[in-house]
Write a protein that binds this DNA or RNA. Structure first.
Lengths: 151, 151
DNA sequence: GCGCGAAAGTTCAAATCTGAACAACAAGTA
DNA sequence: TACTTGTTGTTCAGATTTGAACTTTCGCGC
């Protein structure tokens, strides 16, 4: 509590810019996905992760960690996606406690249909505005923080 | 829809890192604020903005834009902060439709008490891990996106 | 002065998120 | 084998967010 280390102008500018931008971009993405496919951003991320996974399936806990969401939120969202026919639950062969979330064919098609429009937003507002150098610096910077927070 | 521009590995790495990091950091901050002061991150941001504003007061809409939250969410949060005695509502002299959110003395003291712990988290996971150069590059990159999204 | 499109805040219903509590199972130890 | 500790996924209650609908007020052109 003693001698607080405040942020100097450069640090403050960086933090403010990061904070505002992440929230603004999140809102824009949410809006695009909702209007284009009726999906939320977490739901879209779930589909992406599953599509990238071996056999298009993943354990619930691992998936929750990847998408950065609580276990209960994932339970809820997988149920929603199951109702929509995009994902199915399967029992885990190696662990009777476990549940596998599996991407269905319909889910894969949905993802392929939605991805272009989503990527266009990510490009238009972020990726395409940065130089190669800025992209790499950002990756390096973000990775440090991500690593530190994964504990 | 024709010829989708996918993200190459460098672009994808940058986007993934940004996305995960912002969510992880958000969760960590939320946790710290909740346990240290019973505040949510949006609530804390409201106090910060008001403390920085002339006369410690701001119009609702302007405040909502600053914190990047919907008008209805701000209405809700200001009501919460009012119950806690940290903020008050005042009528706007120049516009009868308007409402001013005003930071109380208790609100200012609360902020001064909570800020150090909050900044420690921002430093520990983000700011202190970046070089001066990375900080500046990040600010430049984020500002481009922020600017593009403020429309 | 009048009317009219735009803006400010609030209210409301619906959806979502989180943490705590819980039940079932795993894995290692005595 | 029986115990103990930790993990997994779900359920539940409570808090929060969002967009749409609505009321009131501005600002302007006529």
């Amino acid at each position: 509590m003693t001698d607080t280390r405040w942020l100097d102008p450069t640090e403050m500018a960086a933090w403010r810019a990061f904070l505002s931008t992440s929230h603004l971009l999140e809102r824009r993405i949410e809006e695009q996905l909702k209007s284009a496919a009726g999906l939320t951003h977490p739901q879209y991320e779930i589909l992406v992760r599953l599509a990238d996974a071996p056999d298009r399936q993943m354990r619930m806990t691992e998936l929750a960690r990847g998408v950065v969401v609580s276990k209960s939120a994932l339970t809820y969202q997988i149920t929603q996606l199951e109702k929509a026919g995009l994902v199915e639950r399967a029992t885990c062969p190696s662990d009777d406690r476990g549940v596998l979330a599996v991407l269905t064919d319909a889910g894969m098609r949905c993802l392929e249909r939605v991805a272009p429009g989503h990527l266009e937003v990510v490009r238009a507002y972020l990726i395409d505005r940065l130089t190669r150098d800025e992209l790499e610096t950002m990756t390096r910077a973000m990775s440090k923080t991500e690593q530190a927070l994964r504990d």
